[in-house]
């Protein structure tokens, strides 16, 4: 449904997005996870035809964002980081306007506006001026705006920022209920958010794609221990027996390498136990040849450190300090 290929975006000398590629299948919810400044908003602005890419291509429902921009825009509902609201309009008047500029035929307009208000549960407030709504209601009106023309694709940029925990739960439930019929990309810097809502996660950091997996696998990696990759010349079963005796090992994976009876070994240890020197000693003591020993996916761990890994009680306020700490 959405194909991003070798997408790069420069702002002058700053490279905000660096050669990222990913696909989103029809009906899927893709989590777009990354710390602040990772390039999430930039990528979304390119997908939604707000700005052109520096290089690479993006296709939505088979249409190119540059060459067939109008077709793409008709098919996308977009909630930017700050909901694009007119404070002096009523909720219903606003949604009617959005439906018009999204080319909803006049026959269906009323019905679709009502459907969107119902889904986002703002129909009680439909005659109210947006100016008078609380932050949570405004976010819902922003969501309703993204849904009103019943688009195939929905792009949500940090849709839960600034909401209280109850509102967050509601919004997530709503987003989940949209999956299947709609294809959704949701950006966030909050790790638990993706595991709660998304089918698949793309992690970006400093403009680069660093991982793409299911939330379950990523959570295992995070919660799981430290991984070490080894390359050893040995006999597989013998090696396994030796390694098994070491304490604090959780999992051992041994695969033969193509070249010269060497083995690729991945050892997962419990968190906080660095077994590298012990592993090296054991292997050498038993007369095997050790060719390589390196920790795996440290980059990913760095990024997890920068992410917000816990639900926050006041997301906006605690955002900055947490990032600062992570850098130190």
């Amino acid at each position: 449904m959405i194909e991003v290929q070798n997408l790069t975006k420069d702002y002058g000398h700053i490279r905000a997005v660096d050669n990222i590629s990913f696909d989103v299948k029809k009906g899927e919810i893709l989590g777009f996870l990354g710390p602040n400044g990772a390039g999430k908003t930039t990528t979304m602005r390119i997908i939604t035809c707000f700005m052109p890419p520096t290089s690479g291509t993006v296709k939505v429902a088979g249409f190119d964002v540059l060459d067939e921009s109008m077709e793409v825009r008709r098919r996308i509902g977009y909630l930017p980081e700050n909901p694009p609201l007119y404070p002096e309009m009523t909720v219903e008047g606003y949604l009617d306007f959005v439906a018009r500029i999204k080319n909803v035929p006049s026959r269906q307009r009323r019905e679709l506006v009502h459907r969107a208000m119902e889904m986002c549960r703002v129909e009680d407030h439909r005659h109210m001026l947006i100016r008078k709504l609380s932050r949570g209601y405004r976010q819902r009106v922003g969501l309703a705006q993204a849904l009103v023309h019943n688009p195939e694709v929905i792009i949500l940029d940090e849709p839960t920022v600034g909401l209280d925990p109850k509102q967050i739960i509601e919004v997530r439930r709503l987003i989940k209920s949209l999956a299947g019929e709609h294809t959704i990309i949701l950006s966030t810097h909050i790790l638990p958010e993706v595991s709660m809502t998304c089918d698949r996660v793309v992690i970006i950091n400093e403009g680069r794609l660093v991982a793409e997996d299911t939330p379950e696998n990523l959570t295992i990696q995070l919660k799981g221990g430290e991984m070490v990759h080894l390359e050893v010349k040995a006999e597989a079963e013998a090696l396994r027996r030796i390694l098994r005796d070491i304490d604090h090992i959780r999992h051992i994976e041994i695969k033969p390498l193509d070249s010269a009876d060497r083995l690729a070994v991945t050892v997962e240890s419990e968190r906080g136990h660095d077994l590298r020197s012990l592993l090296a000693a054991k292997i050498v003591q038993n007369g095997y040849e050790l060719y390589e020993l390196r920790p795996v996916s440290l980059s990913l761990e760095d990024i997890f450190l920068k992410l917000t890994t816990e639900e926050e009680t006041s997301p906006v306020a605690s955002d900055q300090p947490q990032q600062e700490e992570a850098r130190r």
């Binding site: 602005r45 939604t48 035809c49 707000f50 109008m70 825009r73 008709r74 996308i76 977009y78 930017p80 980081e81 700050n82 909901p83 694009p84 609201l85 007119y86 404070p87 959005v98 500029i101 999204k102 080319n103 705006q145």
Partner: peptide, 14 residues
Amino acid sequence: KRGTMELLMTSPLT
């Protein structure tokens, strides 16, 4: 200022 320009510019309007 309100960010509504982003709404207009990502809608199917020239």
